[in-house]
């Protein structure tokens, strides 16, 4: 599975879900080919819709379809999820509809689609919507374990997915709980909280820190809302030094969530790695990670700094 694109894995999981549950339908806004969900149309006539390039319409149509017991999944790029802000807030959220919203190409993974296509505000926007759950897949192995739990949850959820291949850090022997953050590597000196593509960077940073005799605890916060405050704050209490790593604007996303929790339950110095309140730009991932300060090396520097401030 590691050699497969996330969108392929996702589409196959969705196909399986549609086979098992007739209430599941999908709606796209002309991006089914980009998101690998196009083939669902042939397999499930009438249950895989395309409303054209009209995201707002898509969100409200999905909400309406729940009136007959359907469980719609709508999909677009993360950058265009922001277009549906008010529809997700009212038609989906306020109305309490069980609609799953899938955003792909998060943050810098939009690569050569460039700055206009880099979702930087989608996570902060979604976090501001009451009752919204936000899950970001770390890799294909985890996504496969997450899918049954996502399907079982009856409520609005934002699912953020890379489209292409991502490094595999989970293995199938691990136990996945949608509502619990996962400690991927235990440590006592510094806490590194990460999600999405930044988990692999965080683990690499932990290796580099280990070479310096520093034991970093790496936590995968795949579900940034509701935040697993218990796991995160317990680690923070233990280490007293924290770095958060996310592929989204650090304002309103994982950094904010962790700071909010820590401020209440386990005050500490917390340093952010991520998109630092700036727009994206065109480029390949290695360049973008470097220019945005999102490499393992950057995480190491931040971890050392966090430890220094603590001491």
């Amino acid at each position: 599975m590691a050699d497969q694109e996330m969108r392929q894995v996702f589409a196959r999981l969705l196909e399986q879900a549609m086979e098992e549950d007739l209430r599941i339908i999908t709606i796209d806004a002309d991006l089914a080919k980009a998101n690998a969900t196009f083939s669902l149309r042939e397999k499930f006539p009438g249950r895989a819709l395309d409303v054209g390039i009209a995201e707002q319409n898509m969100a409200s149509i999905a909400a309406g379809m729940t009136s007959y017991g359907f469980r719609p999944w709508i999909g677009t790029f993360c950058c265009f999820v922001s277009r549906m802000a008010d529809q997700i807030l009212l038609s989906v959220g306020y109305a309490g509809r069980n609609v799953k919203i899938v955003g792909t190409d998060p943050g810098i993974t939009a690569e050569i689609n460039g700055g206009t296509h880099m979702g930087v505000a989608d996570v902060s926007m979604m976090r501001g919507i009451p009752e919204m759950t936000i899950y970001e897949a770390t890799d294909a192995v985890q996504l496969q374990m997450a899918m049954p739990q996502i399907l079982a949850y009856e409520g609005p959820m934002y699912i953020r997915l890379a489209r292409r291949q991502v490094p595999t850090v989970w293995d199938a022997s691990m136990k996945f709980d949608l509502w619990k953050a996962q400690i991927l590597r235990p440590g006592k000196d510094v806490t590194i909280v990460a999600n999405g593509i930044m988990v692999a960077e965080a683990l690499e940073a932990a290796e580099l820190l280990a070479a310096q005799g520093i034991e970093a605890e790496v936590i995968d916060v795949h579900t940034v809302k509701p935040l697993d405050t218990e796991t995160v704050c317990a680690s923070i209490r233990k280490t007293g030094a924290v770095v958060t790593c996310e592929n989204a604007n650090i304002l309103g996303g994982l950094y904010s969530a962790v700071c909010e929790a820590a401020a209440q339950y386990s005050p500490a110095r917390i340093l952010p790695i991520g998109i630092r309140d700036r727009f994206g730009e065109v480029g390949r991932l290695p360049y973008l990670k470097e220019t945005m300060g999102m490499t393992a090396q950057h995480i190491v520097q931040a971890a050392l700094q966090a430890k220094e401030i603590k001491n």
């Binding site: 309406g64 038609s91 306020y94």
Partner: peptide, 19 residues
Amino acid sequence: MSTGSLGQGISCAVGMALA
């Protein structure tokens, strides 16, 4: 359907009709 922000209800109705 809960409504109030204009333009959304008609889309919801379209969703109901499809459903």
